[in-house]
Design a protein around this nucleic acid. Structure first.
Length: 805
RNA sequence: GGGCGGUUAGCUCAGUUGGGAGAGCACCAGCUCGACAAGCUGGGGGUCACUGGUUCGAGCCCAGUACCGCCCACCA
């Protein structure tokens, strides 16, 4: 064994072995208690990013821990077809080939996507494997698998039959580049420098006078159908009820009152354009105003724009502004900074357009989910996210589920020439209403999240009643990032409750977001991304897993390589202490025979560390757990225990040798869920090892006595000796350990610090005495706090005595 | 405009019902002994963002201020 642990090669070897030997495999027939994680499906075109890596580290730790604890673990995985994202990628690819989606047509385009995916997609599973994720890769699923598609169709028809899916003309977010609608959740907002334009709309009956409005989008003036002012706004009382003339198109429209107009903004008068603004749309519907449209799906002025038809919005705006200037109706133009909505994929400016889309009503379907959340049957961790999840579900608006894309699940809706709709899982032969055989399927596809919502049970074969579904639904937990709560987690909960009448999992762990080291978001476009595979190549998957878990926190954290480095050091330290033990145990086999003080003590320390780990794993406190592993390995196991038993190992003490192996075994088990590879590698070098660590049982506590009362004096003596060069009185056993661990030549034996050390201790003693003399403290503080203070006082006094010895 | 979180050592972060300011990394010094391309030991370094309050006692509780994030929102 080399003195430096080198993870490369070792890790890949174990990854192959574990999978080949079927140790990742889950079997639905098991009678054991189950631990099921349906891992979030990555985009089929995606590559591993830091968020995935953290998610893997976290979920795999829990899975491996439960596997060792005897649970039947099902760590399930697969891909999301990621409608808009995948379409985007393939369209770019077509562009490079000198063609386009439009040119090849829908049918051919979908074929090209499939071909493209077969060639370039689906690389991330290899990266999951490289992280050591112990998923059952045999059960990999894809949201476009035939069986999955059937589940999606069933869901749609089910909701439609219940009357919860409907079609309506509403104002929606339109991406002019993708030419599709988007839900609010698929937008990003960005501040831009713009202009606010003040335009006078003359009264129809008195053109010299009029109402001045402020607008950020003069091009939409052509679709104005009213001017609105705040209810009871005195400034405009004379205008309400009269009519004004819309510039350029010279349309006569009413001046109305509405409480949604903010009197503080601009002039307090708003031009109402229901066709191109969400607020105006609402106002228009309530006042029964017409809905005009002058901008088309391509973002350019459409046929309704008269002489401006075909122009882009900037050009149209120029023409309109010129028109206004000529007539002296352009009152003012001022700089205006505001935020606009962009398509999160292509960053095109979102166009609010009225469009016929499919919607899912939320009011009824969300109720059981809300109840489950409120009652804590499903709990988000941390608690703050639980409140947020409830809040966002309570306020969830109807869900726009249709998209005008080509890649995705086509709606199971057929329309006959008379406009009747037939909704069936399979293509119907005739219109359900009039019997017409001339049916045309809706061209829309479903929002990707509509299918993702079924993930925890569709991957188990639902709607078929499969053994997997019986065994693994409901699952156990889900891990994800904060921004996915509304998009995915909540939707899995309500769809699971609706279709299977059971929650899909009882815990959702919302993990830390790892920011770039400068505090910005990690993102490819900002160039702040970080390839976790580079970290794995440099430090190993174990170190990377450890580092990411160490970074987890109650808040977002900046990435620091130091955490990964710490993991690398831990792996190396473990490797080396194993070398020490393995090289000096002769033909001993692992067996716990603790006799000597250091053996009774390390058994107790390992018990303690294990108890802490179990508590922290159970509470999803991964960073603290990594701290426990680090310190128990370095400080307790290596610096004290290993040093103390060295002479006995060399001397051939069989009890010490067997016990050392047993203790090493136990340490490896504690570390395995976080650092699976290095621990398995060392495990395989232990004498008489035939089973794998990955499936070996999690240790039972040794139930050792608390040996600290005998052991602590050695630590105190060592501290005093190192600081002041004074040796404290110890009994024979203690002295043996002291001599093994605290070598004389390592101590600073100059005695010069003696008085300073005594002074420090006297200060501590005085402080402790003061506190204990304080009646209010003794009466009010919790008993254990007071007791701890008494113990401290005694310990300081002992140390002071030792100094004087 | 709302909601949530943050501000602790040079860096990244802990600090669990209020009771000795911590870890890892970095830095300095000593040691190097039969696991450790390193390790071990010791050390320097902090007005716990600021201001007030409660308390015998505040990093922690309360009120306010400043700055930094994130999420949400139809201010044209």
């Amino acid at each position: 064994m080399e003195p430096l642990y080198k993870p490369e090669g070792v890790e890949e070897r174990w990854q192959r072995t574990w999978e080949d030997e079927g140790l990742y495999a889950a079997e639905p027939g098991s009678r054991r208690e189950t631990f099921v994680v349906a891992h979030p499906p990555p985009n089929v075109t995606g590559a591993l990013h830091t968020g995935h890596a953290l998610q893997i580290a976290l979920a795999d730790l829990l899975v491996r821990w439960h596997r060792m604890r005897g649970f039947e673990t099902a760590f399930l995985t697969g891909y999301d077809h990621a409608g808009i994202s995948t379409q985007n990628v393939v369209e770019k690819h077509l562009l490079e080939q000198g063609t386009s989606r439009e040119e090849v047509g829908r049918e051919r385009f979908v074929e090209i996507v499939w071909d493209w995916l077969r060639e370039y997609g689906g690389t991330i599973m290899g990266q999951f494997r490289r992280m050591g994720a112990s998923m059952d890769y045999r059960r990999e699923r894809f949201t476009m698998d035939d069986a999955y598609v059937r589940a999606v169709m069933r869901f749609f028809v089910h909701l439609y039959d219940k009357g919860w899916i409907y079609r309506a003309n509403r104002i929606i977010n339109w991406c002019p580049h993708h030419e599709t609608s988007l839900s609010d959740l698929e937008l990003v907002h960005e501040e831009v420098d713009d202009a606010l334009t003040y335009v006078r709309y003359p009264f129809a009956d008195d053109p010299a006078d009029g109402v001045t409005i402020a607008t950020a989008r003069p091009a939409t003036i052509l679709a104005d159908v009213a001017v609105a002012v705040g209810r009871g706004d005195g400034r405009w009382r004379h205008a309400v009820g009269r009519e004004v003339v819309v510039p350029f198109v010279e349309r006569v429209v009413p001046v109305i009152e509405d409480e949604r107009v903010d009197p503080e903004f601009g002039t307090g008068a708003l031009k109402v354009t229901p066709g191109h603004d969400p607020l105006d749309f609402d106002i228009g519907r309530d006042h029964d105003l017409p809905e005009l449209t002058v901008i088309g799906p391509d973002g350019r002025m459409n046929g309704e724009a008269g002489e401006l038809a075909g122009l882009n919005q900037e050009e149209a705006e120029e023409r309109i502004l010129a028109w206004l200037r000529e007539r002296d109706q352009l009152m003012k133009r001022e700089a205006y900074r505001h935020s606009i909505a962009l398509c999160e994929r292509c960053k095109s400016r979102i166009e609010p357009l009225i469009s016929l889309q499919w919607w899912c009503r939320m009011d009824e379907i969300k109720q059981p989910a809300l109840a489950a959340l409120r009652e804590g049957r499903v709990r988000y961790v941390p608690e703050s996210q639980h409140r947020y999840a409830i809040d966002s579900l309570e306020n969830a608006p109807d869900w726009n589920i249709s998209r005008q894309l080509w890649w995705g699940h086509q709606l199971p809706v057929w329309e006959c020439p008379d406009g009747h709709l037939t909704v069936r899982e399979e293509e119907p032969g005739a219109c359900a209403e009039c019997g017409s055989a001339e049916l045309k399927r809706s061209e829309d596809v479903l929002d990707t999240w509509f299918s993702s919502a079924l993930w925890p049970f569709a991957i188990l074969g639902w709607p078929e009643r499969t053994p997997e579904l019986d065994a693994w639904y409901p699952g156990t937990l889900n891990t994800t990032a904060r921004e996915i709560i509304r998009l995915w987690e909540n939707r899995m909960i309500f769809s699971g409750l609706e279709l299977l009448e059971e929650i899909p999992f009882s815990r959702v762990i919302i993990h830390t977001t790892v920011l770039a080291s400068d505090g910005r978001r990690m993102s490819k476009s900002l160039g702040t991304g970080l390839d976790p595979l580079d970290l794995v190549a440099e430090h190993g998957a174990d170190a990377t897993r450890y580092g990411l878990l160490k970074l987890t926190s109650s808040q977002d954290v900046r990435f620091s390589e130091g955490a990964i480095e710490e993991g690398r050091k831990l792996a190396n330290k473990l490797w080396n202490v194993s070398r020490l033990i393995l090289a000096n145990v002769g033909d001993a086999t692992p067996e716990l025979r603790p006799r000597a003080l250091e053996e009774r003590w390390i058994a107790w320390r390992l018990d303690q560390a294990q108890a802490q780990l179990e508590e922290q794993f159970g509470a999803y406190e991964f960073s603290s757990a990594m701290g426990v592993l680090y310190h128990v390995t370095f400080d307790d196991f290596c610096d004290w225990y290993a040093e103390a038993i060295k002479p006995r190992l060399y001397d051939g003490d069989e009890d010490a040798r067997a016990t050392a192996l047993a203790n090493l075994e136990r340490l490896l088990k504690l570390l395995h869920p976080a650092m699976p590879h290095v621990t398995e590698e060392i495990w395989s070098n232990l004498p008489g090892r035939e089973t794998r660590l990955i499936v070996s049982p999690w240790p039972e506590p040794v139930s050792a006595e608390d040996a600290s009362a005998e052991f602590e004096p050695i630590r105190v003596a060592a501290e005093v000796f190192r600081r002041a060069g004074v040796r404290a009185p110890l009994d024979e056993e203690q002295q043996r350990i002291f001599d093994a661990v605290v070598k004389p030549d390592r101590a600073k034996v100059d005695g010069g610090d003696l008085e300073a050390e005594a002074e420090r201790l006297r200060g501590e003693i005085a402080r402790a005495e003061r506190m204990l003399a304080n009646e209010r403290f003794v009466q009010n503080a919790p008993g254990e706090v007071v007791e701890a203070e008494r113990e401290k006082l005694e310990r300081y006094r002992r140390e002071l005595d030792a100094l004087g010895a």
